[in-house]
Amino acid sequence: MSDNPLQLDNVSFGFGSIAVFEKLSLAVARGEFVAIVGPSGCGKTTLLDLFSQFRAPTSGTIQCTGGVRMVYQHDSLFPWQTVSQNIALGLSHITDAGEQRRRIGEMLSLINLEQFGDTYPHQLSGGMRRRVELARALAGDSDILLLDEPFSALDYLTRLRLRNELARMLEEFPRTVVLVTHDIEEAAQLADRVLVFSERPARICCEITLELKRPRELTHPQVVQTVHRILAELGLEHQDRHLAVLA
């Protein structure tokens, strides 16, 4: 057993005759933020399902140590519960009512929605709902945060803002994070390591490590360069051209 909270060893998985993964191996270190980008349908979400043990691999081993919370692509707040009640889901292990209230208040101020504890999700904007989802997932003592395209339904400016907010939340509540995204900028702005997946059966065709501190400016040269590299890796840009630009 290794010390990594998340680890896949020679994992294969398929839907019927469609092979999604063939002998895929990857490890995520404690506290690391890994982003996974790749063509649609390459199995990014399936990978999160394997990590969260929602699906079982056909072969290989999956190691997942610690409490796991997932933020889904689509709204998954319970619409019949208030913002506070939704956040309380993540705090159900705290039996003391006063302490639970205090922790809910802490999460509400983390996402700057102190005034909205008694509001229902449908009364909030899309960006606010996403922040509540993040707060619900970060509340309590989980170790691993799985994010499945968490900001894909938002407008561009809200997305930019929420990237910074997520970085700030992780400062206060450090987690091991796996982010699946179509948004290459998002990956470059947030991740310690970006894995670019190939078409099915998915393999890791490129691994980019960033040592820049978060939150990162979208226009920081290292972020821009990472975006170029990912685009080139996905066959959407010629690698030599951007190198010429940067030179």
Partner: peptide, 21 residues
């Protein structure tokens, strides 16, 4: 939406709690 049941599972709901909550 099936995601509600996934969330319930993520947060450790029992079967009776899934029905009532």
């Amino acid at each position: 939406p099936s995601v509600y049941f996934r969330v319930a599972r993520d947060y450790g709901f029992s079967n009776s709690k899934i029905l009532t909550h």
